[in-house]
């Protein structure tokens, strides 16, 4: 096994993520606009459908959508692309013996870089209409939430990559799972609209807690400590469980990819 110091690992992670982005966009600005535009287009479609056609009574609906959709895209695209990371990089794993755990992390970090690049546009989208002026507290709230989301998403991504190495069709099921979760979290309507008996179950969903934090930051400039604590607790449990799974299943990944 190639020995790596923590600094070398960090540099390696940075290079993996940066080079992948570079290869995808080839340094073209249009590529970046395309990735961001897709999410704005999605927000536009939901806005037309729910606000204009169905007459949803939520004053800040366009902000509500954008504040949630970008972190959601980071999470779902990060986990789905990470699920392919062992299989797609079979060469690296088999021939070079690189530490497996870093590959899905690179996918999650790539999507985080996307999110960070889109942040100025999100902030502009939220702030320019004037109802939700930007505040200084975003300077600590947003990075803190990004860190929380990173530790929340990474164990999921690692578990997805492991599962997909052993059982090859997991990546398709993951895509379906995230579509269902998208409507169960909920991303396009507030939980307050859900009938009371059901709403309890929505509140149990850790994904809901995380997304609620994002919306509270952008809409109320407030850090939702309750939901953040719930998401963090979930991330901690996930982390422990996935660590054990990793210890158990990673050594044979080189043989099954």
């Amino acid at each position: 096994m190639i020995e790596r110091s923590p600094w070398q690992l960090l540099e390696f992670l940075y290079l993996l993520a940066r080079m992948e982005l570079k290869a995808r966009y080839k340094g073209r600005f249009l590529g970046y606009l395309g990735a961001v535009g897709l999410i704005f287009a999605l927000a536009f479609v939901f806005w037309i459908a729910f606000k204009v056609i169905m007459g949803l009574d939520l004053p800040n609906y366009s902000v509500y959508l954008v504040a949630g959709l970008f972190p959601w895209a980071w999470m779902s695209m990060g986990v789905v692309s990470a699920s392919r990371s062992f299989v797609a990089n079979a060469g690296l794993i088999k021939e070079m013996g690189i530490a497996h755990a870093i590959l899905p992390l690179s996918n999650v970090v790539q999507e985080m870089m996307h999110f960070a690049l889109a942040l100025p546009l999100i902030v502009a989208w939220v702030a320019i209409p004037g109802d939700y002026p930007p505040t200084w507290s975003w300077l600590w709230q947003i990075p803190l939430l990004m860190a929380l989301q990173l530790v929340f998403v990474y164990p999921l991504a690692l578990a997805a990559a492991l599962a997909n190495a052993y059982v090859r069709d997991i990546e398709y099921w993951l895509g379906i799972g995230f579509v269902l979760l998208f409507f169960a979290t909920p991303m396009v309507y507030p939980v307050s609209m859900v009938p009371e008996g059901l709403a309890r179950y929505f509140e149990l969903n850790p994904f809901h807690a995380l997304m609620e934090c994002w919306r509270t930051v952008f809409i109320e400039s407030r850090f939702d400590a309750t939901h953040a604590a719930y998401a963090a607790a979930f991330a901690a449990v996930e982390g422990v469980v996935v660590w054990f799974l990793y210890r158990r299943f990673a050594p044979r990944v080189g043989e099954v990819v």
């Binding site: 790596r4 600094w7 070398q8 540099e11 390696f12 290079l15 080079m19 070079m96």
Partner: peptide, 12 residues
């Protein structure tokens, strides 16, 4: 060169 070097365990 940089990516592969890093894969091989080299520092930047």
């Amino acid at each position: 060169v940089f990516l592969y070097g890093s894969i091989l365990g080299m520092r930047l």
